[in-house]
């Protein structure tokens, strides 16, 4: 399946946050916003399809817990760690190409 660049970036952002340790959905959303200085944020529940897709693909593991009220915690799996490393390298390559292209345009 073709994944758009923005979708891919969002997935990698979530994986990067979870690399620091397990977190609830809202903590992931807050952390992404803080760590990117507000450049990326999840509004209107857009985080959940990303988390659920990553869970289906085995990149994160969701666990229900909590006393009285059920709460879901996500943690990174080994597959997710590998995906983050591969994805980050891919993105770096793609952005380098883009920056060279834009740099070339400016120079012209």
């Amino acid at each position: 399946m073709q994944v758009t660049l923005s979708k891919r970036i969002n997935e990698l952002l979530v994986l990067a946050v979870l690399e620091r340790g397990p977190a609830h959905g809202y903590q992931i959303a807050l952390s992404v916003e803080e760590r990117t200085g507000g450049a990326f944020s999840f509004q209107h529940g857009t985080l959940y399809p990303i988390l659920h897709r990553l869970e289906t693909n085995g990149h994160v593991r969701g666990t229900w817990g909590g006393e009285g009220r059920r709460r879901k915690t996500y943690e990174l799996t080994d597959a997710g760690r590998a995906e983050l490393a591969a994805g980050a390298a891919d993105l770096e390559r793609q952005f380098r190409v883009l920056l060279e292209l834009f740099g070339g345009t400016h120079a012209a």
């Binding site: 809202y26 959303a29 509004q43 209107h44 529940g45 857009t46």
Partner: peptide, 19 residues
């Protein structure tokens, strides 16, 4: 908090497709 986490129309469509 609600603006951030309550799914909007597009998000609902994505969740429906996933689940």
């Amino acid at each position: 908090a609600l603006r951030r986490v309550v799914p909007g129309t597009d998000t609902l469509a994505q969740l429906e497709a996933q689940h």
